[in-house]
């Protein structure tokens, strides 16, 4: 397929995109963007678009991790709580005077440990991923409350704050640092999925776990790593979250769970596992971000956002099914 598109030029590339699993999200993204740029002049301005990117960065980082998990045929419901717990670790470390780089490593390490707990319970103790992560969703949240008696930690006045602020709000020329960071993360994740034995094993496990096991894939280890990746992305996301809010809050942002999983699913990664990728997730996240931005620009009450993103999720997965049927009928006609 890839050789065809390079030799076939632009037309082949367009056809390839239209056949892809994220075609629906991409077309919707384009349509909504065109609509908004016609009716909201502010929409198609550089600062506004960069604002969309920055305000969805926490979700995007988590969605990268969640994409790995969903491809493996499992789901991690606890990443929101893990982000909150990591954020508290990060905030407390900063306030205790830990230098920023070490505090960042500490937050990532916290995410790693939380992910490893999920991974161990799912892969080695063989407990259902749904049960495990539903349990840890509650546990991690509770831990986040316990460590500082339920109160937030403000990092506004810690010595490392200006550097942290530079990371989450600063620019390199006209380009936000966060955008560069997100793109690097996206490229690494895409590369891992496509070019590593681990990535290919992930698709195999998601598609048929018993076949993967019988063909010598180390299923337990791969699943452990998948949940660790989810934990690491929670650790990274917590750094961005604390930086943007200037405080580490012990309360879980419940919207994150829906937004992140919705971005993954809208982007064409199948809930049943074995299919999908981070490109789709990025498009899905952008789409949700653009819709949210459009609502804000149109001064629609933010209370409606949940209704809209929930509906978009259901609609897009439904339309994905219709796309399969249409494609089948078209093929039939050409026979």
């Amino acid at each position: 397929m890839s050789t065809q598109s390079t030799s076939g030029g632009f037309g082949a590339l367009v056809r390839r995109i239209f056949r892809s699993r994220y075609a629906g999200a991409l077309i919707s993204l384009v349509l909504v963007s065109v609509f908004l740029s016609l009716y909201q002049p502010v929409f198609l301005t550089w600062p506004n678009i960069m604002n969309i990117v920055k305000s969805n960065s926490v979700g995007f980082i988590l969605a990268i991790g969640a994409t790995f998990v969903v491809i493996s045929g499992t789901v991690d419901l606890s990443f929101g709580s893990a982000t909150t717990a990591s954020a508290m670790a990060f905030g407390l470390l900063l306030v205790a005077g830990t230098p920023l780089p070490l505090a960042v490593l500490g937050a990532i390490f916290a995410g790693f440990v939380l992910g490893a707990i999920n991974g161990y319970l799912v892969a080695y103790a063989k407990i259902s991923f749904f049960v495990v992560t539903l349990g840890t969703l509650s546990i991690f949240q509770s831990v986040a409350l316990v460590v500082n008696s339920g109160t937030s930690v403000s990092v506004f006045s810690v010595p490392g704050f200006s550097a942290l602020n530079q990371f989450v709000n600063g620019n390199i020329g006209p380009v936000p640092v966060l955008l560069v960071f997100n793109i690097v993360l996206f490229l690494i994740a895409g590369g891992v999925l496509r070019f590593t034995a681990f990535g290919r094993s992930l698709y195999a496990i998601g598609s048929n776990i018993e076949a993967a096991r019988l063909n010598g894939i180390n299923v337990k280890r791969v699943l452990l790593i998948v949940f660790i990746i989810s934990g690491l992305s929670a650790g990274l996301a917590s750094v961005v979250q604390v930086g943007r809010l200037t405080v580490a809050s012990p309360n879980v942002d419940m919207n994150l769970l829906l937004t992140v999983l919705a971005a993954v699913l809208i982007g064409g990664t199948a809930m049943t596992g074995g299919e999908g990728g981070v490109l789709g997730t990025m498009i899905g996240m952008l789409f949700l971000g653009v819709v949210q931005n459009g609502l804000t620009l149109s001064s629609v009450s933010s209370f409606w956002q949940g209704t809209l993103s929930g509906s978009i999720l259901i609609l897009s997965v439904w339309l994905g099914g219709i796309r399969g049927v249409l494609r089948a009928q078209k093929q039939k006609k050409t026979e």
């Binding site: 698709y203 195999a204 048929n208 894939i217 199948a270 074995g274």
Partner: peptide
């Protein structure tokens, strides 16, 4: 149930082994 990867292509079904 335990041999093919139904949603993957021929190439990956060979290469997984």
């Amino acid at each position: 149930g335990s041999a093919i990867l139904p949603v993957r292509d021929i190439s990956e079904n060979f290469a997984m082994a």
